[in-house]
Amino acid sequence: MPYQEADETDPMLLVGVELAAGEEAARESANAIAQEYARMGFDEPRLMELFTNPFYGGSHQTFLLLGAEKIRAIVKEQVAFWSRVCCRDRDTDPETGLGLLNVLQDERRKTP
């Protein structure tokens, strides 16, 4: 971070200006996120959680802006195409044979 106190008269200073990002940017963001995670082997439920969980700020913003229906359509479409062009590399659980990430997510879903 800068060593000096912020100079509020400096036009280059970051002062929290919100850059307009409308529905088109949100749709492209959602497509890009869904594509990249589908290529990493995320399936539809895991991808939907990226959007529905408020912990993931960027993707959740697109969920709030576009709504569940549009996000689900984007996720379905991207998974159908890009899950084939992907590099899947998961840790396996010795008992279930499932990917560890899946197991953890399943457990979290069970937790009220």
Binding site: R84, V85, D89, D93
Partner: peptide
């Protein structure tokens, strides 16, 4: 989508690698 194979060649036109559109799944043992 077609599962094409793409082959890369070096300066001497020797094959460096080939890869397909559909990639194999690698599952790392526990």
């Amino acid at each position: 989508l077609y599962n094409d194979t793409i082959i890369a060649y070096n300066r001497d036109s020797k094959e460096i690698f080939r890869t397909t559109i559909e990639e194999p799944v690698h599952v790392r043992p526990a």
